[in-house]
């Protein structure tokens, strides 16, 4: 149950999603990846990609225009 975090602040779409996809093989089932983003476009495509792959996703707006996306890898 490890937790990873990715900093994608200031990165325009689609870089945040590509970072997640690159990091993804390092995660084991049950691990959680937290991505910090501030580009609204990533707010749409990261959860969409993760849910499509069957993982649990939650989004939280931590500041105005800054979001944390939590993805839990299903085993």
């Amino acid at each position: 149950m490890a937790e990873f975090s990715l900093d994608a602040l200031g990165e325009a779409c689609p870089i945040p999603l590509l970072k997640v996809q690159k990091k993804w093989p390092d995660l084991k089932g049950g691990d959680v990846l937290i991505i910090h983003i501030d580009h609204s476009c990533a707010l749409k495509n990261i959860p969409e990609w993760a849910r499509k792959e069957g993982h649990n996703v939650e989004v939280e707006e931590v500041e105005d225009g800054v979001w944390d996306i939590y993805i839990e890898k299903t085993a």
């Binding site: 779409c13 689609p14 999603l17 590509l18 609204s40 476009c41 707010l43 749409k44 495509n45 969409e48 990609w49 499509k52």
Partner: peptide, 17 residues
């Protein structure tokens, strides 16, 4: 709506959406 012409052509390849 988070509408984006770029994503409309890019996402099918990147996310399958």
């Amino acid at each position: 709506a988070r509408f984006c012409f770029t994503a409309s052509l890019r996402d099918p390849i990147l996310t399958g959406s």
